[in-house]
Design a protein around this nucleic acid. Structure first.
Lengths: 325, 325
DNA sequence: TTGTAGGCGTTATCAG
DNA sequence: CTGATAACGCCTACAA
């Protein structure tokens, strides 16, 4: 790999002239510039972004840490985030904690070593102090450590209420909600509180099942849903994230239940997992494109040293009517 | 952010002593080491991996360029790749070309700027010379430029034949295969040649529909499948990648066709998209875990300057019997 | 065992 | 407009 020195030598100019040519382009005689560009082409020279990064204290990479790349929700979110980042000239470094705390910790360490300019955190199992003392631009998705660390999140209360409406309109009596276990007061818990409140006010019974994210893949959800529906045949409505929702739909159909007459399924998130099924699943859809836009706006503003006006950005979800409720 | 100098000052030693403490740990008096470690902790010092990278000419990051992060196939593959990379101490930088050549090109440029140690390429729309003159460790997934650039791929011929068997056993007469358009002689085309050969030998008619990856999302596939099945009611078998396969299944059911009696669906890839449906889709499953293992082995061997014994690694797919054929 | 000096590839400063 | 020179933060000789 050619260095800037090689280019300078070949072009017969000083190193800094090459540097100027690559960067500002100011104060370089057109013919000198021409010579330099020819040498660059000749040597197939590409500036070392690593070294540049050392100097500028900025590499142009934003990291995004997710529980697992496999989850379609994060795949979709990452898709939109990457798109927005690209427009601003950043590259995305997508990292998967693989649902392990140890790896989450290791990644947080790596992020602090200047390999990235900022971090989008979709997973927050570590101690608050880790985030408080992180020392680099941060955006979180489901948990607010303090007012200094911005959060972009969908309006979970509204989401829970939208779901409740669906169940009420369908005259449900026993609704089951699948709750992801959490060691912290994350925003997504609010949807469950809201759903319960709205349903109980309407005289509907609500049952909670708490699950561990890292314990289930689709097959696991399938087993869980089968046994739950068998044990509790009274259940006539379910709210769950997309993947478990699909599993419950599958289980319900297998058990001979009619959908939506016997059982309603409402998926929370609304990725295309809710559409691939023969029956389209009714969903509370998070506006991932808008959220991604805000996430990128917030993280890049911080990288540029700007002050943020708010620290909490809430986006309303929408109800996507499907055939399951 | 504290630098190595701050640590040295606080610990009352020279900079290089700190460096040695962080790295080798050789030839440092236990008590000196102790002092240094205390200072590191005190200052919450994290070495600047950027600078280290400049020196070592290695950053510990491997990039993976995919057509689009949204595609579950690449999400799953990335999941396994990341897992293997992590074990070897590498971080993954997952990049999405978003099905645009321009972005593919831009990423290839960035990759050469030393921000990554090697690249896993799942998308290869550029001129061969770009890959030939890349100058960094490379692994490709579906296209062999030359014998110097290693390829990890699933046995597409075998995959096509496995699919053909399914159709033949089900006594199909008119099979449709969905082919991704390609400007290059990629390996995945072989599955279609193999399927056609095997089916025609058995007297089964084969129809091809060529699609453009970047033209369809699930809704697009749904429209396509609907119109194709309506226009060609004689079709009684379909081979397609997971997502279009799911779309065809949905369309078939909507059109009142019985599955698998009236129409068989075989998905190629076998990600969990084939499992979330009420009917599990029969699939030709690529061994992504094994492939990822090999990919990482091959890329890291190159980063370490080792010579590769082979340049083509082919993995047999397996037939996952579902309920659609 | 520890410290000093020089270099990695760039860029900014300040002469010329 | 262009060229030395120092600096970024770290690491490896080589010297002490």
């Amino acid at each position: 790999m050619a260095t800037i020195r090689d280019v300078a030598k070949l072009a017969g100019v000083a190193v800094c002239t090459v540097s100027r040519t690559i960067n500002n382009n100011q104060n370089v005689l057109p013919e000198t510039k021409e010579k330099v560009l020819r040498a660059i082409k000749e040597l197939d020279y590409v500036p070392d972004e690593l070294t540049r990064g050392v100097f500028r204290k900025k590499v142009g990479i934003i990291a995004m840490l997710v529980p697992s790349i496999r989850h379609q929700f994060f795949g979709s979110l990452a898709y939109h985030v990457e798109k927005e980042l690209y427009v601003k000239g950043y590259k995305l470094m997508l990292c998967s904690a693989d649902d392990q705390m140890e790896r989450e910790q290791e990644y947080m360490r790596v992020f602090r070593s200047n390999l990235v300019d900022g971090v989008i955190l979709c997973v927050t199992h570590l101690e608050d102090s880790v985030y408080e003392n992180f020392g680099k631009p941060l955006v979180m998705l489901d948990y607010q450590v303090n007012e200094k660390i911005p959060v972009v999140v969908c309006d979970n209360v509204m989401g829970g209420e939208l779901a409740a409406e669906v169940f009420i309109k369908n005259h449900r009596k026993h609704v089951l909600q699948i709750i992801s276990e959490s060691d912290k007061p994350v925003f997504s818990l609010k949807r469950h509180v809201a759903l319960r409140a709205a349903l109980e006010a309407a005289g509907v019974a609500v049952r909670d099942t708490i699950i561990n994210w890292n314990q289930y893949d689709f097959v696991g959800y399938q087993d869980l849903s089968m046994s739950l529906l068998e044990t509790h045949p009274e259940i006539d409505g379910i709210m769950a994230p997309d993947m478990p929702a699909a599993a419950f739909l599958k289980a319900a159909v297998r058990l001979g239940k009619r959908v939506p007459e016997d059982i309603c399924v409402v998926a929370f998130d609304g990725t295309y997992l809710t559409r691939v099924n023969t029956l389209q699943i009714t969903a509370i859809t998070q506006p991932l494109d808008l959220m991604a836009e805000k996430i990128v706006e917030v993280i890049s503003a911080q990288v540029d040293g700007k002050e943020l006006e708010e620290s909490l950005y809430i986006f309303p979800p929408t109800l996507t009517r499907g055939e399951t409720g």
